[in-house]
Amino acid sequence: MNKIKRIFTYVFLSIATFVSIFPFLWMCISMTNKSVDVTRGRLIPGSHLFENITNLFQNYNIITSIVNSLIVAVITTVLTLLIGSLAGYGFEIFRSKGKDVVFNILILSMMIPFAAIMIPLYRLFGRISATAPLFGIDTLAAVILPTVITAFFVFFFRQNTKMFARDLVEAGRMDGLGEIGIFFRIFVPSMKTTYAAAAIIAFMNSWNNYLWPLIVLQSPENHTIPLLISTLGAGYSPDYGVIMTAIVIATLPTALVFFLMQKHFVAGMMGSVKG
Protein backbone atom coordinates (compact mmCIF):
# COMPACT_ATOMS: atom_id res chain seq x y z
CA MET A 1 0.00 0.00 0.00
CA ASN A 2 2.70 2.42 1.06
CA LYS A 3 4.79 1.44 -1.90
CA ILE A 4 1.95 2.07 -4.32
CA LYS A 5 1.46 5.47 -2.76
CA ARG A 6 5.14 6.23 -3.20
CA ILE A 7 5.11 5.19 -6.84
CA PHE A 8 2.01 7.30 -7.40
CA THR A 9 3.75 10.29 -5.81
CA TYR A 10 6.77 9.96 -8.08
CA VAL A 11 4.69 9.49 -11.20
CA PHE A 12 2.51 12.49 -10.32
CA LEU A 13 5.51 14.70 -9.56
CA SER A 14 7.33 13.59 -12.70
CA ILE A 15 4.39 14.51 -14.89
CA ALA A 16 4.06 17.87 -13.11
CA THR A 17 7.79 18.47 -13.51
CA PHE A 18 7.68 17.67 -17.18
CA VAL A 19 4.76 20.01 -17.78
CA SER A 20 6.47 22.72 -15.75
CA ILE A 21 9.87 22.64 -17.35
CA PHE A 22 8.90 21.77 -20.92
CA PRO A 23 8.57 25.41 -22.05
CA PHE A 24 11.86 26.19 -20.36
CA LEU A 25 13.55 23.32 -22.19
CA TRP A 26 12.05 24.65 -25.39
CA MET A 27 13.66 28.02 -24.70
CA CYS A 28 17.00 26.36 -24.02
CA ILE A 29 16.79 24.55 -27.35
CA SER A 30 15.64 27.72 -29.12
CA MET A 31 18.64 29.66 -27.92
CA THR A 32 20.83 27.35 -29.98
CA ASN A 33 18.85 28.00 -33.16
CA LYS A 34 18.56 30.71 -35.77
CA SER A 35 15.56 33.00 -35.63
CA VAL A 36 13.94 31.39 -38.65
CA ASP A 37 14.12 27.96 -37.00
CA VAL A 38 12.64 29.31 -33.80
CA THR A 39 9.65 30.70 -35.67
CA ARG A 40 9.29 27.36 -37.41
CA GLY A 41 8.99 25.71 -34.01
CA ARG A 42 12.07 23.55 -34.45
CA LEU A 43 12.75 21.40 -31.39
CA ILE A 44 16.19 20.08 -32.26
CA PRO A 45 19.30 21.76 -30.81
CA GLY A 46 21.12 23.77 -33.45
CA SER A 47 24.60 25.26 -33.73
CA HIS A 48 23.71 28.93 -33.46
CA LEU A 49 24.23 29.35 -29.72
CA PHE A 50 27.55 31.14 -30.02
CA GLU A 51 26.22 33.60 -32.61
CA ASN A 52 23.17 34.37 -30.49
CA ILE A 53 25.27 35.04 -27.41
CA THR A 54 27.77 37.22 -29.28
CA ASN A 55 24.99 39.15 -30.94
CA LEU A 56 23.28 39.74 -27.62
CA PHE A 57 26.40 40.84 -25.75
CA GLN A 58 27.82 42.96 -28.57
CA ASN A 59 24.72 44.81 -29.67
CA TYR A 60 22.84 45.28 -26.44
CA ASN A 61 23.75 46.49 -22.96
CA ILE A 62 22.80 43.21 -21.36
CA ILE A 63 25.54 43.36 -18.73
CA THR A 64 24.42 46.82 -17.61
CA SER A 65 20.85 45.58 -17.44
CA ILE A 66 21.77 42.53 -15.38
CA VAL A 67 23.79 44.68 -12.98
CA ASN A 68 20.91 47.16 -12.64
CA SER A 69 18.41 44.37 -12.05
CA LEU A 70 20.70 42.79 -9.45
CA ILE A 71 21.19 46.08 -7.59
CA VAL A 72 17.47 46.74 -7.53
CA ALA A 73 16.50 43.18 -6.62
CA VAL A 74 19.02 42.75 -3.81
CA ILE A 75 18.28 46.10 -2.14
CA THR A 76 14.56 45.59 -2.57
CA THR A 77 14.66 42.11 -1.09
CA VAL A 78 16.63 43.12 2.00
CA LEU A 79 14.54 46.20 2.74
CA THR A 80 11.25 44.44 1.98
CA LEU A 81 12.05 41.66 4.41
CA LEU A 82 13.02 44.07 7.15
CA ILE A 83 10.14 46.54 6.81
CA GLY A 84 7.52 43.91 5.99
CA SER A 85 8.37 41.64 8.87
CA LEU A 86 8.65 44.47 11.40
CA ALA A 87 5.20 45.65 10.44
CA GLY A 88 3.61 42.21 10.15
CA TYR A 89 5.00 41.32 13.57
CA GLY A 90 3.91 44.65 15.03
CA PHE A 91 0.36 44.32 13.78
CA GLU A 92 -0.05 40.82 15.17
CA ILE A 93 1.88 40.88 18.47
CA PHE A 94 0.84 44.39 19.53
CA ARG A 95 -2.65 43.97 18.27
CA SER A 96 -5.13 46.75 19.01
CA LYS A 97 -8.35 48.04 17.51
CA GLY A 98 -6.67 51.12 16.08
CA LYS A 99 -3.94 49.07 14.45
CA ASP A 100 -6.47 46.69 12.94
CA VAL A 101 -8.19 49.62 11.29
CA VAL A 102 -4.89 50.90 9.95
CA PHE A 103 -4.07 47.40 8.77
CA ASN A 104 -7.31 47.19 6.81
CA ILE A 105 -6.58 50.51 5.15
CA LEU A 106 -3.06 49.40 4.22
CA ILE A 107 -4.45 46.19 2.75
CA LEU A 108 -6.69 48.25 0.49
CA SER A 109 -3.57 49.46 -1.28
CA MET A 110 -2.83 46.03 -2.73
CA MET A 111 -6.30 45.72 -4.18
CA ILE A 112 -6.17 48.44 -6.82
CA PRO A 113 -4.51 47.67 -10.15
CA PHE A 114 -1.12 49.31 -10.40
CA ALA A 115 -2.07 50.85 -13.74
CA ALA A 116 -4.56 53.05 -11.90
CA ILE A 117 -2.06 54.63 -9.54
CA MET A 118 0.85 54.67 -11.96
CA ILE A 119 0.32 58.15 -13.34
CA PRO A 120 -0.31 59.85 -9.96
CA LEU A 121 2.74 58.03 -8.66
CA TYR A 122 4.76 59.26 -11.61
CA ARG A 123 3.63 62.79 -10.90
CA LEU A 124 4.71 62.34 -7.27
CA PHE A 125 8.16 61.28 -8.41
CA GLY A 126 8.21 64.25 -10.74
CA ARG A 127 7.91 66.43 -7.66
CA ILE A 128 10.50 64.40 -5.77
CA SER A 129 12.84 64.97 -8.73
CA ALA A 130 12.59 68.71 -8.18
CA THR A 131 13.78 68.53 -4.57
CA ALA A 132 15.75 65.29 -4.36
CA PRO A 133 16.91 64.31 -7.84
CA LEU A 134 18.77 61.30 -6.46
CA PHE A 135 15.43 59.69 -5.70
CA GLY A 136 13.54 61.15 -8.64
CA ILE A 137 12.60 60.03 -12.13
CA ASP A 138 15.17 58.01 -14.02
CA THR A 139 16.99 56.68 -10.94
CA LEU A 140 17.11 53.14 -9.62
CA ALA A 141 15.96 54.55 -6.27
CA ALA A 142 12.65 55.49 -7.88
CA VAL A 143 12.15 51.87 -8.84
CA ILE A 144 13.08 50.61 -5.40
CA LEU A 145 11.14 53.03 -3.19
CA PRO A 146 7.54 52.08 -4.03
CA THR A 147 8.32 48.37 -4.16
CA VAL A 148 10.06 47.89 -0.82
CA ILE A 149 7.07 48.86 1.25
CA THR A 150 4.09 46.87 0.15
CA ALA A 151 0.97 45.72 1.93
CA PHE A 152 1.54 42.31 0.42
CA PHE A 153 4.54 41.56 2.64
CA VAL A 154 3.00 43.16 5.70
CA PHE A 155 0.03 40.86 5.21
CA PHE A 156 2.27 37.87 4.51
CA PHE A 157 4.36 38.35 7.65
CA ARG A 158 1.31 39.01 9.75
CA GLN A 159 -0.33 35.74 8.68
CA ASN A 160 2.87 33.86 9.39
CA THR A 161 3.24 35.52 12.77
CA LYS A 162 -0.13 34.00 13.63
CA MET A 163 1.58 30.61 13.42
CA PHE A 164 4.44 31.76 15.62
CA ALA A 165 4.38 30.52 19.20
CA ARG A 166 3.46 33.58 21.25
CA ASP A 167 4.78 32.09 24.49
CA LEU A 168 8.25 32.68 23.06
CA VAL A 169 7.59 36.42 23.22
CA GLU A 170 6.45 36.14 26.82
CA ALA A 171 9.51 34.07 27.62
CA GLY A 172 11.68 36.75 26.10
CA ARG A 173 10.05 39.43 28.19
CA MET A 174 10.61 37.32 31.31
CA ASP A 175 14.27 37.11 30.38
CA GLY A 176 14.33 40.90 30.27
CA LEU A 177 14.81 41.26 26.54
CA GLY A 178 13.49 44.51 25.03
CA GLU A 179 10.79 44.34 22.38
CA ILE A 180 13.31 45.01 19.61
CA GLY A 181 15.58 42.37 21.09
CA ILE A 182 12.75 39.86 21.13
CA PHE A 183 12.07 40.56 17.48
CA PHE A 184 15.66 40.17 16.31
CA ARG A 185 16.84 37.46 18.69
CA ILE A 186 13.77 35.27 18.92
CA PHE A 187 11.34 35.97 16.10
CA VAL A 188 13.75 36.35 13.20
CA PRO A 189 15.76 33.17 13.86
CA SER A 190 12.70 31.03 14.43
CA MET A 191 10.95 32.25 11.27
CA LYS A 192 13.81 31.43 8.92
CA THR A 193 11.62 29.57 6.45
CA THR A 194 9.15 32.42 6.31
CA TYR A 195 11.99 34.78 5.51
CA ALA A 196 13.27 32.36 2.88
CA ALA A 197 9.88 32.29 1.18
CA ALA A 198 9.57 36.07 1.36
CA ALA A 199 13.06 36.47 -0.06
CA ILE A 200 12.19 34.32 -3.05
CA ILE A 201 8.99 36.23 -3.74
CA ALA A 202 10.51 39.68 -3.20
CA PHE A 203 13.49 38.89 -5.42
CA MET A 204 11.28 37.46 -8.11
CA ASN A 205 8.80 40.36 -8.06
CA SER A 206 11.61 42.85 -8.33
CA TRP A 207 13.43 40.93 -11.02
CA ASN A 208 10.34 40.63 -13.20
CA ASN A 209 8.86 44.06 -12.46
CA TYR A 210 8.03 45.70 -15.77
CA LEU A 211 5.44 48.46 -15.83
CA TRP A 212 6.81 50.83 -13.19
CA PRO A 213 10.48 50.59 -14.26
CA LEU A 214 9.34 51.07 -17.84
CA ILE A 215 7.70 54.36 -17.00
CA VAL A 216 10.21 55.70 -14.52
CA LEU A 217 13.50 54.60 -16.09
CA GLN A 218 14.22 56.36 -19.34
CA SER A 219 17.97 56.27 -19.92
CA PRO A 220 19.27 53.03 -21.38
CA GLU A 221 22.05 52.93 -18.77
CA ASN A 222 19.35 52.52 -16.12
CA HIS A 223 17.32 49.84 -17.88
CA THR A 224 16.59 46.57 -16.15
CA ILE A 225 16.41 43.15 -17.74
CA PRO A 226 12.67 43.08 -18.57
CA LEU A 227 13.01 46.43 -20.34
CA LEU A 228 15.88 45.07 -22.39
CA ILE A 229 13.91 41.97 -23.36
CA SER A 230 11.00 44.14 -24.41
CA THR A 231 13.34 46.17 -26.59
CA LEU A 232 14.71 43.01 -28.19
CA GLY A 233 11.25 42.10 -29.48
CA ALA A 234 10.56 45.59 -30.78
CA GLY A 235 11.98 45.36 -34.27
CA TYR A 236 10.09 44.77 -37.50
CA SER A 237 11.89 41.46 -37.86
CA PRO A 238 12.80 40.40 -34.32
CA ASP A 239 15.57 37.85 -33.84
CA TYR A 240 13.85 35.16 -31.80
CA GLY A 241 17.08 33.22 -31.24
CA VAL A 242 18.60 36.22 -29.49
CA ILE A 243 15.41 36.88 -27.54
CA MET A 244 15.33 33.30 -26.24
CA THR A 245 18.99 33.52 -25.26
CA ALA A 246 18.34 36.70 -23.27
CA ILE A 247 15.32 35.15 -21.60
CA VAL A 248 17.14 32.00 -20.51
CA ILE A 249 19.93 34.17 -19.07
CA ALA A 250 17.33 36.33 -17.32
CA THR A 251 15.59 33.32 -15.78
CA LEU A 252 18.67 31.83 -14.16
CA PRO A 253 19.23 34.25 -11.22
CA THR A 254 15.73 33.80 -9.77
CA ALA A 255 15.85 30.05 -10.32
CA LEU A 256 19.16 30.01 -8.46
CA VAL A 257 17.80 32.10 -5.60
CA PHE A 258 14.90 29.70 -5.34
CA PHE A 259 17.10 26.62 -5.38
CA LEU A 260 19.30 28.01 -2.60
CA MET A 261 16.41 29.23 -0.47
CA GLN A 262 14.22 26.15 -0.76
CA LYS A 263 16.88 24.17 1.11
CA HIS A 264 15.61 25.95 4.20
CA PHE A 265 12.26 24.28 3.71
CA VAL A 266 13.20 21.21 5.70
CA ALA A 267 10.43 19.67 7.73
CA GLY A 268 10.96 19.84 11.47
CA MET A 269 13.68 22.48 11.48
CA MET A 270 11.45 24.56 13.69
CA GLY A 271 11.42 21.82 16.30
CA SER A 272 14.81 22.70 17.71
CA VAL A 273 13.84 26.31 18.40
CA LYS A 274 10.44 25.50 19.80
CA GLY A 275 12.08 22.92 22.06
Binding site: A87, I93, I149
Partner: peptide
Protein backbone atom coordinates in the same frame (compact mmCIF):
# COMPACT_ATOMS: atom_id res chain seq x y z
CA UNK B 1 3.56 48.31 24.61
CA UNK B 2 1.11 50.03 22.35
CA UNK B 3 3.59 52.79 21.58
CA UNK B 4 6.32 50.29 20.81
CA UNK B 5 3.83 48.49 18.59
CA UNK B 6 3.27 51.63 16.57
CA UNK B 7 6.99 52.10 16.02
CA UNK B 8 7.16 48.61 14.53
CA UNK B 9 4.61 49.52 11.90
CA UNK B 10 5.53 53.16 11.38
CA UNK B 11 7.76 52.74 8.32
CA UNK B 12 5.19 50.60 6.57
CA UNK B 13 2.44 53.13 7.26
CA UNK B 14 4.51 56.03 5.96
CA UNK B 15 5.67 54.20 2.85
CA UNK B 16 2.32 52.76 1.89
CA UNK B 17 0.56 56.06 2.50
CA UNK B 18 2.99 57.99 0.33
CA UNK B 19 3.39 55.54 -2.54
CA UNK B 20 0.00 53.82 -2.61
CA UNK B 21 -2.76 55.48 -0.62
CA UNK B 22 -1.99 59.00 -1.79
CA UNK B 23 -1.90 58.02 -5.49
CA UNK B 24 -5.08 56.01 -4.88
CA UNK B 25 -6.87 59.12 -3.74
CA UNK B 26 -5.62 60.96 -6.79
CA UNK B 27 -6.88 58.07 -8.91
CA UNK B 28 -10.26 58.38 -7.21
CA UNK B 29 -10.41 62.09 -8.05
CA UNK B 30 -9.44 61.12 -11.58
Amino acid sequence: KNTIGWTFILLAILGISAFYLYPMIQAFLL
